[in-house]
Simulated scan of single mutants.
Amino acid sequence: MLPAFTLALVIGAFASTAPAQAQSAVDEGRNLAFDRGKGNCLTCHVIKGGTLPGSIGPELRDIKSKYPKREDLVAILNDETQRNPLTVMPPFGRNRILTEKEINAVVDFLQTL
C-alpha cells in the first residue's frame, strides 16, 4: 500500500507543477517580448499591456487563430527571411539574439494574445 501511495504523491507533484511551469514560460516570454534589450517586440508591434509600441509590424493579437501551428511562430521568430526574404523582422534565432528556449517562451506568450 505504501509504494502505491508514494507513487500517487510523486505523480501528483509533477502534475501540479505543469501549469506553474507553463505560466512561468508565458511570463518569461512576456518579459522577453517587452524587454527593449532582448526581444524588443514593442519596437515594431502593438501588444496589449505594452507601452510605447511601434507601428512597423502588425498588432499582435488573436495570434493562436492566425498561427494555429506553433512551429510557424517559432520559424518566424527564428528567421522570417526563410519564409519572406523581404521582411524587416529580425532573425532572432539565426542571429542568436534569442536562444531556442527564449524563442519558445515568447511563442508561449504570443499564443495567449
Score class of each variant (00 low, 15 high):
59 E>Y: 00
53 P>T: 04
1 M>H: 13
17 T>E: 13
35 D>V: 07
112 T>V: 00
106 V>C: 03
27 D>H: 07
77 L>Q: 04
1 M>R: 11
31 N>P: 00
8 A>P: 10
93 G>D: 06
95 N>F: 11
88 V>D: 03
18 A>V: 15
85 P>K: 08
39 G>E: 02
18 A>W: 11
101 K>F: 06
72 D>P: 03
10 V>D: 08
71 E>A: 12
94 R>V: 08
76 I>V: 11
85 P>D: 04
26 V>K: 00
35 D>K: 10
33 A>I: 10
39 G>T: 04
106 V>T: 09
40 N>Q: 08
6 T>E: 12
110 L>S: 03
95 N>T: 13
89 M>C: 07
93 G>W: 06
63 I>G: 05
34 F>S: 05
45 H>Q: 09
37 G>E: 14
77 L>S: 05
77 L>D: 02
108 D>W: 02
109 F>R: 05
53 P>R: 05
26 V>C: 03
6 T>N: 11
94 R>G: 06
66 K>M: 09
60 L>D: 05
75 A>Y: 06
94 R>D: 10
89 M>R: 06
71 E>C: 02
49 G>M: 04
89 M>V: 08
80 E>D: 10
68 P>L: 09
88 V>A: 03
100 E>S: 12
41 C>G: 08
113 L>A: 08
29 G>Q: 01
80 E>N: 02
65 S>N: 06
45 H>T: 07
36 R>Q: 12
91 P>I: 02
61 R>H: 02
76 I>F: 05
54 G>N: 10
41 C>Y: 07
80 E>S: 01
10 V>K: 10
103 I>Q: 01
58 P>I: 08
53 P>M: 05
102 E>N: 01
37 G>L: 11
76 I>W: 01
59 E>P: 13
52 L>G: 10
106 V>L: 06
60 L>M: 09
111 Q>C: 03
99 T>P: 01
5 F>G: 14
22 A>K: 15
13 A>Q: 12
6 T>F: 15
3 P>I: 12
98 L>Y: 06
42 L>M: 13
11 I>H: 07
65 S>C: 00
97 I>K: 13
15 A>Q: 14
109 F>L: 04
7 L>W: 11
47 I>D: 05
24 S>L: 10
81 T>F: 02
29 G>T: 00
95 N>W: 11
22 A>C: 07
86 L>Q: 14
98 L>C: 06
6 T>C: 14
58 P>H: 05
36 R>S: 13
99 T>V: 03
86 L>D: 13
112 T>L: 00
33 A>C: 10
83 R>L: 08
106 V>I: 09
3 P>M: 09
40 N>F: 14
99 T>C: 03
72 D>T: 13
55 S>V: 11
93 G>E: 07
83 R>K: 13
111 Q>I: 14
42 L>I: 08
69 K>Q: 11
56 I>D: 05
28 E>R: 01
99 T>E: 03
100 E>M: 07
41 C>K: 12
85 P>W: 02
96 R>N: 15
58 P>M: 07
17 T>F: 13
55 S>A: 10
80 E>F: 01
67 Y>M: 03
65 S>M: 07
83 R>I: 02
16 S>C: 14
28 E>P: 00
82 Q>I: 12
28 E>A: 12
70 R>K: 14
68 P>I: 01
84 N>H: 02
81 T>I: 04
43 T>N: 11
102 E>V: 01
7 L>M: 15
82 Q>G: 09
27 D>W: 03
46 V>C: 00
100 E>C: 00
81 T>V: 09
48 K>F: 05
63 I>Q: 08
